[in-house]
Amino acid sequence: MSDVDNKELDRMLQKAFEASTKIYQERGFQRRVGFGKRPALISVDLANAWTRPGNPFTCDQEAMDKEIIPGMQRLLEACRANGHPVIHVTTAYEITDRNAGFTDMGLWHCKIPIDVVDLKNKDLWAIDSRIAPIEGEYTMLKKRASSFHGTGLAGLLRAAGVDTILVTGVTATACVRTTICDGLADGFRTIAVRECIGDRVPGAVAWNLYDIDAKFADVHSVDECVDYLNKVNDTASRIAAE
């Protein structure tokens, strides 16, 4: 889409948001779940197949290079400086033959080309080197859209005393959204980091973040989340001492 088309799409979305906000607020939506005392960063599918060009899953490269990766770098710096857990999530499959009688792809390959993310090609599902995991951070492999579905993520978070998840990654329409929905369902305070969520379809991020903020998570900026990550330990210590 051209810049003119994008601006017109943004204008139309903003008009829809304004009308929808009135309906939501009249009916008691858009409440706040709030930040908790013990956060973790959940980075969804910021692996090369999604962050780099040339793959069917490749997302908006301008947003990736100018907003998502730089924002992630700031979040990672704050988590690492303050000892907050970081879970990098990626997706790949061992049996990618669509005609096989059994495959770990399940039926998802009937809808989208997940067969291209072959577990044998580690470079595809490796986390982008610009935000590569360091020692003490966990890289989790998932098979479905949600980072919680069929994984041990909720148990890992609870064992670490986590009550708040800051969710980033791609895509807003699928893996990020379902991770947020399931995170709230599993009892975690859910925070969507606005500048660190992407997609490949124009308008998808704006619409989904608006809708998520009304129903499933609080949407906050990178600045707000970094400030929280840098201060939450001190706040928790002060409350415990009182």
Rank of each mutant, 00 (worst) to 15 (best):
H109A: 10
H109F: 15
H109V: 07
C110A: 10
K111C: 06
I112Q: 13
P113R: 13
D115G: 03
D118K: 15
K120R: 15
K122W: 03
D123P: 01
D123H: 15
L124H: 04
L124V: 13
W125M: 06
W125L: 05
I127L: 07
D128R: 08
D128N: 14
R130C: 03
R130W: 07
I131E: 00
A132Y: 11
I134A: 05
E135V: 12
Y138C: 05
M140Y: 05
K142V: 02
R144N: 06
A145G: 10
S147L: 07
F148S: 07
F148C: 07
T151G: 05
G152V: 13
G152M: 13
L153C: 06
R158A: 08
A159P: 01
A160G: 01
A160S: 14
A160Q: 15
G161Q: 06
G161P: 01
G161A: 09
G161N: 07
V162M: 10
D163Q: 05
L166P: 00
V167K: 02
V167T: 12
T168L: 10
T168P: 00
V170F: 12
V170N: 11
V170G: 05
A172P: 02
T173G: 07
A174I: 14
A174G: 06
R177K: 14
C181K: 06
C181L: 14
C181E: 11
G183C: 09
D186E: 15
G187L: 13
F188T: 02
F188H: 03
V193E: 01
R194C: 00
E195W: 11
E195T: 05
E195Q: 14
E195G: 05
C196T: 15
C196F: 07
D199K: 11
R200T: 01
A204T: 04
A204C: 02
V205M: 01
A206R: 14
A206V: 07
W207D: 01
W207N: 08
Y210H: 12
D211Y: 06
I212W: 00
K215L: 04
K215D: 00
K215G: 00
K215Y: 06
A217P: 04
A217Y: 09
V219D: 00
H220A: 13
H220F: 13
V222S: 08
D223Y: 08
D223G: 02
